[in-house]
Amino acid sequence: MNFSDYFVLWVGGLLTLMIFSFLYRDNPFYKFAEHLFVGVSAAYWMVVGFWTTFIPNLIGSIYPPSVSWFTANPEEARTVIASLYDQMWYWRYGRIVPLILGCMLLTRLAPKASWMSRWPMAFIIGYAAGTNLTRYLQSDFVAQIKATLVPLIVFNEAGFSLGETISNIVIVFGVLSALVYFFFSKEHKGWFGGTARVGIWVLMVAFGAAFGYTVMARISLLIGRMNFLGSWLGSVF
């Protein structure tokens, strides 16, 4: 192991212990690690955004020769520059618009000029509304309804399939009853209330499954950290 490997192992190990110290109670070591995490992660995402989006999609698009400033391989740079010049000129120079909108977004830091940040906010909201409307309409509404329309009596190659029949009945009536529970324009009484009650049970199974899955995911992360601590301590002793 070289110096940087030791550095990663020791710093990672000490920071892991600092975070776990919160299990005893809030303390200066935990606060140190927590504040460090906030600073490092904010800068990390800024750097990633800068090198993966800002440089190639903005600077590179407006001024393609700039690609060679940030690429070690001249051949790769030439290919990227050629592909950028293939784009229509108005789309390339059109990238000035998000540059201006992005600068306007920063006016939020100056209270007197903060009204200017409404323009980029309007773009973000419009984009999110436009994409979410079509995306959710296709994948979470139409596609889910379509997937629920399954045969209630299933015959496969071996003949009548009791298992698949029960599963399909549970899916169709489970979805319908849970949707009835979400329908608040009619009072939950009589057969409607009974169906809504079944809907609650279906939702409880879904919540229980989600809860169990989350616990498993967190525990596997915990095991990963314990393994890391084990390898760190193994390198020390």
């Binding site: 979470d140 899916i171 009536f173 979805v175 809907g199 279906v202 409880m204 879904a206 499954a209």
Partner: peptide, 11 residues
């Protein structure tokens, strides 16, 4: 059953 519940929530 989890799929049915999740599907109703998604819709």
């Amino acid at each position: 059953p989890n799929l049915a519940g999740q599907r109703a929530i998604m819709i």
